[in-house]
């Protein structure tokens, strides 16, 4: 049985309705010679990167490797020192409605006086534009997105009453509401329960089946093989980027995590658990 499409509501942008997987389409993301710094502390050096449309991508690297910064640079949230980023061949500002963002869960105050439904409705703010307030139809769309993540029953809960996994689901539902072709997610699996992790990965795979591109900062090296089909290895510089089967190698992981004992052990574990027949 084919699963129902995640985003069935008609979108405002006609180009969102069909998602062609054509070879002559520009890549979902093209990063050229990107260097970024916070103050005098460089966090990304000369990154060149291309992400083909329709892939499910993990960004992997040790702490402080610039993973979140890369996402933020793509989203135009930080100004790079050099280089440029193109989304589907154009400036981010032109393709903004094609891009959905899931920030790290800890970046917001979950004691903020608002409900889960309200947070998801924020995903529609971009489409609403200035001054217009969400109407009932928008709330219904938001509720449908909560439902896709199995938390529709929590719609009217204050967000501080949600568990970590539920909060993450709300954030993902908000991104779904954006009905984007490209999703950038900052650690969508951080601090969530096993059930949520399963639900989230199912969702990401389903998004990919619909031809959407999903990029997630990921920490658990052991699941990269099972979850993703494309991997970006990052440690200030780009170590490697490509299909998991050819890129997620012993050598590349060593280069990425080199010199860090704990990370190395983790990487070794990941390699040990790697079984070629696990991937289909």
């Amino acid at each position: 049985m084919k699963p129902a499409p995640i985003l069935s509501q008609p979108s405002m942008d006609p180009s969102n309705q069909e998602l062609p997987k054509s070879e002559n389409h520009p890549p979902a993301i093209e990063v050229h010679d990107l260097t970024a710094a916070y103050g005098t502390q460089p966090v990304l050096w000369d990154v060149d990167l291309e992400i083909p449309e329709g892939s499910l991508v993990a960004i992997v690297g040790p702490n402080g490797a610039g993973k979140s910064t890369l996402l933020k640079a793509v989203l135009g949230l930080i100004q790079p020192l050099t280089g440029w980023v193109k989304i589907f061949g154009e400036e981010y500002s032109k393709k903004r409605s094609w891009v959905g963002y899931v920030p790290q869960r800890e970046t917001v105050d979950w004691d903020f006086p608002t409900t889960a439904l309200d947070v998801v409705t924020m995903g529609l703010y971009g489409r609403l534009g200035w001054f217009r307030l969400p109407r009932r139809s928008h709330k219904e769309q938001a509720l449908a997105c909560l439902d896709k993540l199995g938390v529709a029953h929590l719609a009217h809960r204050q967000i501080s009453q949600l568990s970590g996994g539920q909060q993450q689901r709300v954030f993902l539902a908000r991104a779904l509401a954006q009905d984007a072709r490209l999703y950038l997610m900052d650690e969508p699996f951080a601090g969530v329960d096993v059930k949520t992790e399963k639900a989230v990965i199912e969702l990401l795979k389903q998004l990919r089946e619909e031809g959407r591109t999903v990029i997630a900062v990921h920490h658990d090296l052991q699941t990269v093989n099972d979850y993703f089909d494309h991997v970006v290895l990052l440690n200030l510089r780009l170590v490697a980027s490509g299909p998991v089967s050819t890129t997620f190698t012993d050598e590349n992981l060593n280069k990425t995590y080199g010199g860090r004992l704990t990370a190395l052990t983790q990487a070794a574990e990941a390699l040990l658990s790697k079984q070629p027949d696990k991937r289909n």
């Binding site: 135009g76 903004r96 963002y101 970046t107 608002t114 924020m122 217009r132 307030l133």
Partner: peptide, 22 residues
Amino acid sequence: FLFYKELKLLCFDREYGKSLGY
């Protein structure tokens, strides 16, 4: 009153608001 929605976004999730283009 006029910027209610935008200001709420600012208070709750500034970065996200920026990614939406505000």
